[in-house]
Design a protein around this nucleic acid. Structure first.
Lengths: 208, 208
DNA sequence: TAATATACCTAACTAACGGTAGGTAGTAAA
DNA sequence: TTTACTACCTACCGTTAGTTAGGTATATTA
């Protein structure tokens, strides 16, 4: 593992625990085992480390196979979906699981939660990619289920989207507040609870 | 309005927008219209401003009449609750509404969301008072409803508590990410959406 | 009227920050 | 063998942070 990667990982680790501003280059250098000025051989400014971390994440976000797969795309003709909406949820959940199973990504995710109020780029990423787009996605999901009479007609797709989505976001927030280093058991638990949750919601609104 | 109060309010305003560390005493002093060293006539250290703000909030939290009223206390013998659980929710919601209707409290609430990852006191306050205790409260709520057969017996009070509570927390987070200054319309909307939400949940699990 | 306290000021201090200059040892290419 | 580059070093820079010292004008109290 080369020095630049070590700087990347040490920075990410510290940033995700204390926030960007509270971590000094001296601290990073100490942890890596070099002098602070040597960091400049790899990153020409502190902020470029943060940008690098953030780019690493968004690249993965955009290139995630499952999130972009045809199976994940929701169309009104998707027979499999209509017969088994839980299956469709499962696909999406798989994509998130794949992403968060890498420790780096989980740390970046935490960093985003911590840092979004202090950095305009991260804030707008959170707003668009973590709030608006997923909510649109799930609204569409419930809208189609409603059109196709899989779920009751007195339901509001937009409300249901929030009903569904607020739960895992809450769990993430809870996790990030609770732990500096997030244990694997807690991650597993996150997916279990979210699974129970979607089953509950679907059971509530399905046409019996 | 005396100078100390002005320092309090200006600090709260800036802290809730940019976070504690990103706001300098110069900035606060400029906004108040005095020199930075004059702040020390009122607060002997920067952190004492934050502590003062935080104490102001927790005092209100502990002394909130509605939250401590008998009507709010949940007992298995509470006939009114069993006949109309929506009413019980309404009481709790009133207490929160009363609290957040004061602009200062809303700003402090935002400050807590922003600052909790950087301050151990605020983090543990959030963990205990905003996460653990409310979840216990709502678990108890659903547990009694279940015992008294108001809601279905195949429900899990703990899951229901999270089902209920994750939603308003999500809305708060959404609001704090979206706005620097939170407009009244957004606050009104928060309570409307939360009301729709609890009605939806109760409707889902009620014995018909 | 004299003494005291308050609320502000200017000016300076110390510590820490991100960043730069300039040098050195080791490696690789010409 | 010379040249050039890389990755690191020591030492220092300017800036800004929170904080303190010491002074002044105003208002209150003895």
């Amino acid at each position: 593992m080369n020095t630049k990667e070590r700087i990347f990982d040490v920075s990410l680790d510290l940033f995700s625990k204390k926030g960007y501003d509270s971590v000094s280059l001296r601290e990073i250098a100490d942890e890596v085992g070099i002098k602070k000025s040597s960091i400049y051989s790899h990153y020409s400014a502190k902020e470029l480390i943060l940008i690098d971390i953030f780019e690493y994440f968004t690249d993965q976000f955009e290139n995630n196979d499952l999130l972009n797969s045809k199976e994940f795309l929701l169309t009104p003709d998707n027979k499999a979906l209509l017969q088994n909406p839980e299956m469709f949820y499962h696909k999406g959940s798989q994509a998130v699981k794949e992403m968060l199973s890498e420790k780096r990504n989980l740390k970046i995710c935490k960093l985003i939660f911590i840092q979004m109020h202090h950095n305009e780029n991260i804030r707008s990423f959170f707003k668009n990619e973590i709030l608006i787009k997923p909510l649109m996605h799930w609204t569409n999901f419930f809208r189609i289920l409603k059109e196709k009479k899989v779920i009751r007609k007195d339901t509001d797709p937009k409300l249901l989207a929030k009903e569904y989505y607020s739960f895992p976001i809450f769990l993430l927030l809870e996790m990030f507040v609770k732990y500096d280093d997030i244990p694997q058991s807690s991650i597993d638990n996150f997916f279990d609870e979210t699974e129970d949750h979607i089953l509950f919601i679907l059971d509530c609104v399905k046409v019996k």
